[in-house]
Measured scan of single mutants.
Amino acid sequence: QVNIAPGSLDKALNQYAAHSGFTLSVDASLTRGKQSNGLHGDYDVESGLQQLLDGSGLQVKPLGNNSWTLEP
């Protein structure tokens, strides 16, 4: 069960990665100043990332080996 409060997208993504045990490689300029609506409930990694990114204009991309990145 994930419980991440709304706020900074950077912070939300870092909390989610730490909670879910995956690696997220992101260029900080992509997420700077963006906000997230947070995340509450049970999600697989990709669904949770998509939910956190909702409205940010960013997309999640798998890199393999439980690693992910973001792209515009």
Rank of each mutant, 00 (worst) to 15 (best):
D10G: 07
H19F: 13
L39Q: 01
W68H: 03
L63K: 08
D54E: 14
N65S: 10
A17N: 02
S25E: 14
I4P: 00
S67I: 14
N14E: 15
G48S: 04
G57I: 02
G48K: 01
Y16D: 01
D27H: 08
L9E: 02
V2L: 09
F22G: 02
S56V: 05
Q35Y: 15
K34R: 07
K61C: 09
F22W: 02
K11D: 15
Q59P: 00
H40W: 10
V45Y: 07
F22S: 03
D10W: 15
G64K: 05
N65H: 10
N37A: 12
I4A: 02
G48L: 05
S20K: 15
T23V: 11
D42S: 13
I4D: 02
Q15A: 13
T23S: 09
L63R: 03
V26C: 10
D10N: 06
L39M: 05
I4G: 03
I4E: 01
W68F: 12
T69W: 06
N66L: 05
L49M: 07
S20T: 11
L9A: 01
L63A: 08
S36K: 00
S36H: 06
A5K: 10
S56D: 00
L70D: 01
W68I: 05
Q51R: 12
R32L: 14
G21F: 06
L53C: 08
S36F: 01
D27L: 08
P72N: 07
Q35A: 08
N3P: 04
F22M: 08
G48H: 00
G55T: 04
N66T: 05
N66M: 07
N14A: 15
P62I: 07
G33F: 07
L39P: 00
T69I: 13
R32E: 15
K34P: 07
E46F: 14
N66S: 05
N14M: 15
K61N: 05
L30H: 06
L58P: 00
N65L: 10
G57A: 04
Q51F: 09
L9D: 00
S8V: 04
S29N: 13
D10S: 09
D10C: 13
K34V: 08
L49S: 00
S25F: 15
T23L: 12
T23R: 09
Q15D: 14
G7E: 04
D54F: 14
L24Q: 01
E71R: 06
G21Y: 06
G64W: 04
Q50G: 07
L9H: 02
L49Y: 00
T31I: 14
S56W: 05
D44C: 08
F22L: 09
Q15E: 15
A18E: 11
V60N: 01
H19V: 14
G55K: 06
H40V: 14
L53M: 04
Y43M: 07
F22I: 15
P6Q: 07
L63S: 08
V26I: 12
V45F: 12
H40E: 10
V2M: 08
Q51W: 08
L24T: 02
R32T: 14
Q15L: 11
N66A: 06
L49H: 02
D10T: 09
D27T: 06
E71S: 08
G57Q: 05
Q51T: 11
Q15I: 10
P62T: 08
Q51E: 09
A17G: 05
S56A: 07
G33M: 04
S56K: 03
I4M: 02
K11T: 13
V60T: 07
V2A: 07
G38W: 05
L53N: 00
L39A: 02
G55N: 04
A12I: 09
D44F: 05
T69H: 07
T31F: 06
S67N: 11
K61W: 06
L53R: 00
S25Y: 15
D42M: 14
A18L: 13
G55A: 05
N37P: 14
G7F: 00
S47I: 08
A28F: 09
G48P: 01
V45L: 07
K34F: 08
G33S: 04
P6K: 10
N65I: 09
A5Y: 08
E46L: 15
N65M: 09
G21S: 06
S47N: 08
K11G: 11
Q59V: 14
S29W: 12
N3H: 14
L63C: 11
L24D: 04
F22C: 10
L49G: 00
S25N: 12
I4F: 02
N37T: 08
S20E: 11
A17M: 11
A17P: 03
V26D: 05
N37Q: 12
L52R: 00
L24S: 03
A5P: 14
P62Y: 15
L70Q: 03
N66P: 01
P62A: 13
S56N: 02
Q50A: 13
N37R: 11
S47K: 11
R32Y: 15
K11C: 14
L30D: 07
V2N: 03
F22E: 02
L24G: 04
V60W: 08
N3L: 10
S25T: 13
Q50V: 11
A17T: 05
S47C: 12
G48N: 03
T31Q: 01
N65G: 11
L13D: 01
S8H: 06
N14S: 14
Q59R: 13
N66H: 07
R32A: 15
L58G: 03
T23M: 09
A17I: 08
Q35L: 13
H19Q: 14
S29Q: 10
P72K: 11
S25Q: 14
N65P: 13
G7N: 08
L58D: 00
V60Y: 10
L30W: 05
L39S: 01
P6R: 07
L24Y: 10
P72E: 10
Y16K: 00
G57H: 05
D44G: 08
L70N: 01
P72T: 09
Y43K: 01
D44Y: 05
L70V: 14
E46S: 08
S8D: 13
K61P: 04
L52N: 00
P72L: 13
V26Q: 04
G33T: 03
H40N: 12
T23G: 06
L9M: 05
T31Y: 06
N14I: 13
L53A: 06
L9V: 03
L53H: 00
S25R: 12
H19S: 10
T69C: 10
